[in-house]
């Protein structure tokens, strides 16, 4: 029994680790977030903010609205927006695989974990396909997208329908799936993504702005593309629970599109996160009040923000033009102004 002394410290280490993580989650979720939300609830008199269920939903909303546009800003300006959708569908295959394994064998695998693994592998696969094909070909993305969804649908129907019920929540998203554990996982993913983007911000910006120039300057474009793809996979899996597989890509694209008129890339990222925060917090609130799907509500609010910004920018531009022409018909300009409020 030579291995016993070696395994015992390992067991101790793991249990200490689990204990530490557990306590950390308690501190962050209950002491920090929970307490401040309780205080906010008491201050504003809004009961909804006091319920642990909604507190978790708002935490998820804040996280998603941070990491979605953070990664999406690079994807959109590299014209890689479709990759989010593709990875979301491969994450679905991962969820289905997890649920299938749980149903078929006597083990418990968190579907989020299998989703993360499958989406991560798909991210690297897509990147390899892209490198091989030399461009972000719609065709290779479409093959991976439909292929993973096909795998998912086959796995879902391969069991006796038991897991088909659970799968609906992942397809369309739901506030109810945000358990204490998954809120903690999403929070950890958000920290990971934020740190990743912060650490690689400069090379990512360079590669996004001018890929050949970045290569000439000695940056490893392939490595940063892979990093971006993997970060996208993490965002998609994290946001999937509330947004749903089908709508999750919206959080990577719509707030970024709403912020493209900003002057400066860094400002546009901040503006996109702000727009996304507004969309997710409003969306989660409305979804709770009217008992409708959170993902759909969030996307609709985000699109409304995008439209409002677009109209406002157009109006400001045409007012500016009229002023520079020294012919500013006042009634028209105020009409447009009202539209944008």
């Amino acid at each position: 029994m030579a291995f016993l002394p070696a395994t015992e410290p390992l067991v101790v280490f793991v249990s200490v680790l689990v204990g530490t993580v557990d306590r950390l989650v308690g501190v962050v979720l209950d002491d920090l977030w929970g307490t401040s939300m309780d205080a906010l609830s008491a201050l504003t008199g809004i009961d909804m903010l006091g319920s642990p269920f909604m507190q978790r939903a708002y935490l998820a909303a804040v996280c998603i609205a941070l990491i979605g546009p953070l990664v999406g800003s690079f994807l959109v300006h590299r014209e890689m927006a479709m990759i989010g959708d593709t990875l979301a569908h491969s994450a679905f295959a991962g969820v289905a695989a997890g649920l299938f394994v749980n149903a078929a064998f006597a083990v418990t695998v968190p579907p989020l974990l299998t989703a993360l693994i499958v989406a991560g592998v798909a991210a690297l696969l897509v990147q390899t396909l892209v490198d091989y094909a030399g461009a972000y070909r719609d065709t290779s993305l479409a093959i991976v997208l439909t292929g993973s969804f096909a795998v998912g649908s086959v796995l879902v129907t391969a069991t006796d329908g038991g897991i088909a019920v659970g799968i609906n929540a992942y397809l369309f998203g739901s506030l109810a799936t945000v358990s204490r554990a998954s809120a903690a996982i999403l929070l950890a993913m958000s920290v990971f993504v934020t740190l990743g983007v912060t650490a690689a911000y400069r090379p990512l910006v360079y590669v996004t702005f001018d890929e050949i120039g970045a290569r000439a300057a000695g940056l490893s474009v392939t490595r940063y593309n892979q990093l971006l793809a993997v970060l996208t996979a993490v965002v998609v899996v994290g946001a999937m629970q509330i947004m749903g597989v089908i709508l999750v890509a919206g959080m990577l694209v719509i707030p970024v599109a709403a912020a493209t008129t900003a002057r400066g890339f860094k400002r546009s990222v901040v503006a996109a996160v702000a727009a996304a925060q507004f969309a997710t917090i409003t969306g989660v609130t409305m979804a709770y009040l009217f008992d409708v799907a959170a993902g759909g509500t969030i996307v609709l609010v985000a699109i409304a923000v995008y439209l409002a910004v677009t109209v406002a920018v157009r109006a400001r531009r045409s007012v500016g033009q009229m002023r520079s022409n020294h012919r500013a018909p006042a009634p028209v300009s105020t009409d447009r102004g009202d539209d944008t409020d």
Binding site: H77, F209, D210, I212, G213, A217, G218, F265
Partner: peptide, 28 residues
């Protein structure tokens, strides 16, 4: 890498949609 400055054809330069400012580009 830092000793080489590459100037691409204007048409192939970065898409105009990215809201990068002149200063941001030069900072690169």
């Amino acid at each position: 890498g830092e000793r080489i400055g590459f100037v691409p054809q204007d048409v192939s330069a970065s898409n105009g949609e990215m809201p990068t400012t002149v200063r941001e580009a030069v900072r690169m």
